[in-house]
């Protein structure tokens, strides 16, 4: 492991956590609206307007912007291929967050997939 790798890992984790928080807020807000998929433009815009009227959506946007800032900083310090592979850590965070916060069921296949991602991330980090 190279010098400063721990710091980069930490920043990627921060960026992914922000990303996860923003996704969880977004999902919980969308769940509230009970929208069924539609290609009707009027319905879609109506949906978007109702969505941005929910205050916590703006928290989600802000957190997502913070995530982008950290991400840009990470990219300036490290190789793109490394950062992009390690960013898949958000799959793990999201698995836990949806289990704990949104009370979604996380099935066996998903845990297997999450485990494979963990192995992949460890290998990429060691490389």
């Amino acid at each position: 492991m190279k010098d400063g790798m721990a710091f980069i890992l930490f920043l990627i984790a921060v960026s992914s956590s922000f990303d996860t928080i923003s996704q969880v807020i977004l999902k919980s807000a969308i769940n509230e609206l009970k929208f069924s998929p539609s290609l009707n433009l009027v319905k879609i815009f109506g949906f978007i307007f109702r969505l941005i009227a929910i205050p916590r959506i703006w928290i989600s946007f802000c957190v997502s912007f913070l995530s982008l800032c950290v991400w840009l900083f990470v990219l300036s310090k490290t190789d793109l291929n490394l950062a992009f592979s390690l960013d898949s850590v958000h799959y793990i965070f999201i698995a836990f967050a949806s289990r704990m916060v949104l009370k979604e069921k996380v099935g066996l296949k998903r845990w297997v997939g999450t485990f494979l991602i963990v192995v992949g991330i460890i290998l990429v980090t060691l490389s």
């Binding site: 898949s88 494979l116 992949g120 460890i122 290998l123 490389s127």
Partner: peptide, 20 residues
């Protein structure tokens, strides 16, 4: 090479997660 192996693990993981 090790990184490619890691990337393939991540790819396999993502595919598993989406099947679920």
């Amino acid at each position: 090479m090790l990184r490619w192996v890691g990337i393939f693990f991540i790819l396999a993981g993502v595919i598993f997660v989406s099947f679920s």
